[in-house]
């Protein structure tokens, strides 16, 4: 039976992959997808802790539900921003969108 560290290391690896994508992707949609990967990694952590440390309280699962909600809101707003940027710049490469850089 896999132990707590199995799940935590899986989550850490998934989080690291998401972080790598977040740092290297030029495509704004790709950046958003990397953020979704990181949300999933955090959720795995919450559920694993809930299962292994407080098997009766289920608080971790409640927080995972909240995080899924936040992820949905983030995806909606983020993709709306991506659409707006695409209309104004004819492209969604995040390193080209530097009009707020001084």
């Amino acid at each position: 039976m896999p132990g707590l560290t199995h799940y935590l290391i899986l989550a850490a690896a998934l989080f690291a992959l998401g972080m790598f994508g977040l740092l290297t992707r030029r495509n704004a949609v790709g950046v958003l997808m990397s953020i979704e990967l990181m949300f999933n990694a955090v959720n795995i952590n919450f559920v694993a802790f809930s299962r292994f440390l407080t098997p009766e309280a289920l608080t971790g699962q409640i927080f995972a539900v909240f995080i899924i909600t936040i992820a949905a809101a983030e995806a909606a707003v983020g993709l709306a921003i991506v659409m707006l940027i695409y209309r104004n710049f004819r492209g969604i490469e995040v390193d080209k969108i530097n009009f707020m850089k001084w």
Partner: peptide
Amino acid sequence: VRQTNEQVVPAFVIV
């Protein structure tokens, strides 16, 4: 269209 930026090496080190 290039899909990655120039920060692949530093990002890899950080990750």
